[in-house]
């Protein structure tokens, strides 16, 4: 393990360290996914304001032990050692210390909102636990150290050298950001409304796949069109098109199953309007890698991108999870063994051009999978 500065021994953090504190209470807040530091500060202050008793009133407090390890954070009753709260470390979004007060922010599942504008903003429920401890700062430092140790373990497990992360400048100049998608999606000429006439009870005749995590426009993608079906007959749809709305209801950010359900729901209609962004089935990512020692920032399994380092050169270049690599620097790799693809990628430097398509689309186009038409 690399040395991570902090008040604890790494070995101790793996097993777990206990700190005495007084539990003041908990509250819940709604939060964006990765709020800026100023928002986090306001959230921590808000949590303290809600939990703290007003001046002049007695503050209810429960003596507890905070158990901190690289896997979990638990709040234990001081005497009984019974767990009051138990959170996996990766669900702790952040911690705040304000003088003798410590605030722990645990992310809960995505708040399912029925209001479309909130769904677009992807609000998360945050559970905020507030504690009082004379050494709140020390506890915060120990939790910060546990974050760093767990993070470096995670990077190693994913084949990324932790010394390469964070040591180089985080965000390079916008000039180094390639994202063909950004130009494409912002060009209104690529967006259109497609009207499809059909018989009542007839399906649209489209197969959908996910655009993939990391996509700038997370929504359903047309993977196939049923021959002779209403979608194909209208002549305005092609494989790769993003479906952003159906009869005016947005599909952006919804899980694939929800997009499919929305399309099934219009089976009884005789006319349907799809809002689409016309996209080619294959996308190009351009990774600027100064030398072949620099981490590419993604993992490949059998030609499919299975994970992506946030902020890495691959993500900035437009690479996304769930896509199959079709070409590397103009060379087709569809029939290339995994080991050779890895070799090609590790050798590549300067400007690496990678052409990809959603793996599910690829499987449908090559007949490895049968399309399910909606």
């Amino acid at each position: 393990l690399p040395h991570v500065p902090g008040p604890c021994d790494h070995e101790d953090l793996l097993d777990g360290v206990l700190f005495g504190a007084k539990y003041l209470g908990s509250t819940q807040l709604l939060s964006e996914r990765n709020p800026p530091p100023s928002t986090r500060m306001a959230q921590a202050q808000e949590a303290v304001d809600r939990v703290k008793a007003p001046d002049g009133e007695t503050q209810p407090m429960t003596p507890v032990d905070l158990f901190v390890s690289t896997k979990r954070i638990k709040v234990l009753m001081a005497n009984a050692q019974e767990a009051l709260m138990d959170h996996a470390l990766q669900t702790i979004s952040y911690i705040a210390d304000i003088g003798p007060v410590l605030v722990l922010m645990a992310r809960r599942r995505l708040a399912r909102s029925t209001r479309p504008q909130e769904r677009e903003r992807r609000l998360y429920k945050m559970l905020c636990h507030v504690f009082h401890a004379e050494d709140a700062q020390l506890i915060a430092q120990a939790i910060g150290q546990a974050f760093a140790v767990a993070y470096s373990q995670f990077l190693r497990e994913n084949g990324i050298d932790p010394s390469q992360v964070g040591s180089r400048p985080r965000a390079t100049s916008p000039g180094h950001l390639h994202n063909g998608d950004l130009d494409h999606f912002s060009n209104s000429e690529n967006c259109r409304e497609v009207h499809i006439e059909k018989r009542r009870g007839e399906g649209l005749g489209v197969a959908l796949v996910e655009s993939g995590w990391g996509s700038l426009l997370p929504t359903a993608v047309i993977a196939n069109l049923l021959h002779g079906g209403p979608a194909e007959r209208c002549g305005e749809l092609s494989i790769g098109d993003r479906v952003t709305a159906i009869n005016g209801a947005s599909l952006v950010g919804l899980p694939l199953a929800a997009c499919q359900a929305a399309i099934r729901e219009v089976k009884s209609h005789t006319a349907v309007t799809l809002s689409i962004v016309h996209c080619p089935p294959v996308t190009t990512a351009i990774i600027r890698r100064l030398h072949s020692r620099e981490q590419l920032g993604f993992c490949v399994e059998d030609g499919v991108i299975c994970s992506l380092l946030r902020g890495g050169i691959a993500e900035r270049g437009g690479v996304r999870v769930g896509h199959r690599i079709i070409e590397i620097n103009g060379q087709s790799v569809v029939a290339t063994p995994h080991a050779r693809i890895v070799e090609l990628l590790t050798e590549a430097h300067d400007e690496v051009h990678i052409r990809t398509m959603p793996a599910a689309t690829y499987r449908l186009l090559t007949g490895q999978e049968q399309p399910v038409y909606l």
Partner: peptide, 21 residues
Amino acid sequence: SALTITVNPMEKHEAPGRGEE
């Protein structure tokens, strides 16, 4: 007193929608 925020670096790797109930 000063307010210090320590963000979990894992946060940026978490797939959307993850968390604990």
